[in-house]
């Protein structure tokens, strides 16, 4: 049963996920264990997207299946215990592209991170405020325009000015973002896709 649920999730077999969750609960399996299985499935889904086996529509579907299963399990007292950590995410000021950012948020949440999604067109001050309020040690910025690089840089500078740079790791991403951009912005890492975002958060929050 254990791996079967994660695999059904990864295969996006909605009926099977529902059936296994139902059977698990009926059989007295801990709802929290079932929820963690689903999260494992989400990680596999991210990996399949990264290798090109899965597409955007698959990630969206995964988010939907996961949401339903997680709600059912939470209703039965399921919880994955404390989250793996907090992440603040947003699309930077001047940019309103949200598809890529939304995918990153879904995959981070699926991997059990507590994500504060600030939406699009987020000015540096709002990022700083959210980092302060939540105490998140990871900040993710998305931007699809070359013109987005300056607001990213300004946000990193604002973190520095607020005395937060030392305790907050910064990752950036979005179509045209490159290693040169990362250097220009002063971010700690760039992520080419949502899986990279999950891996970076894992690396930083485990440390």
């Amino acid at each position: 049963m254990a791996n079967e649920l994660a695999m059904a999730m990864a295969d996006l077999d909605e009926e099977k996920v529902q059936a296994l969750v139902k059977a698990g609960l009926a059989g007295g399996v801990d709802p929290s264990a079932l929820l963690n299985e689903c999260r494992e499935g989400m990680t596999l889904i991210g990996q399949r997207f990264e290798t090109g086996e899965y597409y955007l529509s698959d990630l969206i579907m995964a988010g939907e299946i996961f949401k339903t299963a997680a709600a059912d399990l939470a209703a039965q007292g399921g919880s994955s215990g404390p989250t793996k950590g907090k992440v603040v995410m947003g699309t930077v000021k001047g940019d309103i592209h949200d598809i890529g950012k939304d995918i990153v948020v879904t995959m981070l949440r699926g991997a059990n991170y507590e994500v504060t999604d600030l939406g699009v067109d987020v000015p540096p001050a709002k990022f700083i405020e959210a980092v302060k309020e939540t105490g998140a040690p990871v900040l993710g910025m998305s931007g699809l325009l070359t013109i987005s690089f300056d607001p990213m840089k300004e946000t990193v500078a604002a973190l520095q000015a607020a005395g937060l740079r030392g305790r907050v790791k910064v990752m950036i991403g979005g179509g045209p973002v490159s290693e040169q951009v990362r250097e220009y912005v002063g971010a700690d890492a760039l992520g080419v896709d949502a899986q990279a975002a999950v891996a970076l958060a894992g690396q930083w929050l485990a440390a």
């Binding site: 000021k93 001047g94 940019d95 309103i96 325009l145 013109i147 987005s148």
Partner: peptide, 10 residues
């Protein structure tokens, strides 16, 4: 065109 040179509607 917005200040950040984005056209609206997108």
């Amino acid at each position: 065109l917005t200040e950040s040179l984005l056209m609206k509607p997108i």
